[in-house]
Amino acid sequence: MKELTNLDRLCVHTITTKPWSIEESIEQYARAGVKGITIWRDTLENRDRRLIRKKIKDAGLEVVSICRGGFFPKATAGERERAIDDNLALIDEAAEVGAPHIVLVCGAEPTISLAQSRHQIMEGISRINSYARDKGVKLAIEPLHPMYADSRSAVNTMEQANDMWEQLNSKNIGIAVDIYHLWWDPHLQDEIKRAGAADSIMAFHTCDWKNPTTDFLLDRGLMGEGIAPIMEIRSWVEDAGFKGFIEVEIFSEYHWKKDQKIFLNEVINAYRQFA
């Protein structure tokens, strides 16, 4: 496996450096030699998205994706329609900013069963897919750790994501593999192979699972700070044929308190050593 001596495949999510505005992120990532940026939707509020697209291009960065769509399951039909409308609006935003795909945090509804949530997820993705395809935007299903099955996502394993992908049967849909959510899965290697054979791996996200952790959402580790087998999982993904960006996505109250220029350098060093 080729060592990452340069930053050609490094993508940083704007949530990783949350204290920065989208403009600051663009400037600082480019200055540090980062080549890819994944945009979190909130950073585009009150912005001219086409102007942001130009700023990214002029800085020599590539838009890798936009986060996040989904959250399809709801208790009422009206809420489900509003979720569809919100995803359709996000597809427009993705097209305007030049994002090739949207990461779908598929959602879950605690007042209904997991089976019902998964049915509504399938229905929701099916309803927005043709519009996304017409806009040139793909959809990446991201399985989340089972601890989020109550309200964030009823898609919790690569096997479930693969099964869903097969049923949806669209080349405009793929899967985002996120180490934080999947490192524990005993079937992960086989399911990554399965996704690779279908050419459905659309994204690869990395960070680390800290032990002990202070928060299951806002205490993700910088690569090398935790116990996830990052290099091994990266090798599985690449053996499965994925050659895209390696995306660093870290939610961390601890790291957000730092000088973000220092933290970005730490991200780059950790990427070179562990990702």
Rank of each mutant, 00 (worst) to 15 (best):
R41H: 11
P73Y: 05
L104D: 05
I22M: 12
G241L: 06
D48L: 07
E109M: 13
S235P: 02
C207M: 15
V97R: 08
P186I: 14
K74D: 07
I128P: 07
F216M: 15
A75H: 05
R133W: 10
R272G: 07
S252K: 04
E142S: 07
R272P: 08
V64Q: 06
W165T: 00
A195N: 07
V155T: 12
T5V: 11
D92N: 13
Y254E: 13
A95L: 03
I84D: 07
W236I: 02
A59R: 00
G78E: 15
D92K: 12
H145Y: 09
Y254T: 09
Y271F: 13
N269E: 14
D178W: 02
A198G: 01
N129C: 13
I39D: 04
I250N: 00
V267R: 02
I22W: 08
D150R: 14
A75R: 11
F71D: 06
S252P: 06
R9P: 01
I84F: 14
L217I: 15
A161G: 08
T111C: 11
I56A: 03
I173D: 05
R82V: 03
Y148G: 03
G224N: 08
I268Q: 06
R234S: 05
H187D: 14
W40R: 10
Q167I: 10
V137S: 05
D178A: 08
R234Q: 09
Y254G: 04
W20M: 10
R220A: 05
N269V: 03
K54N: 10
S21I: 12
P110Y: 13
L217E: 14
H119Q: 15
M223L: 11
G196S: 07
C106E: 05
G224L: 08
A228W: 02
R133M: 14
Y271E: 04
A149D: 08
R9V: 05
L182A: 03
D219R: 08
E238L: 00
N6K: 09
M147P: 00
I268D: 01
N211Q: 15
Y180V: 02
P100F: 08
W183D: 02
G60N: 04
N269Y: 09
S235Y: 01
E159V: 09
I141R: 01
E93N: 11
I141F: 03
K74H: 14
A195H: 01
E123P: 08
E96R: 07
I66H: 01
A140L: 04
T206Y: 13
L218W: 15
G69V: 03
E142P: 06
V12R: 06
G107V: 07
L182H: 03
A149T: 10
M1H: 09
E45C: 12
E24K: 13
A95R: 12
L144V: 04
A176V: 07
H145P: 01
T38F: 00
L139F: 09
N211W: 15
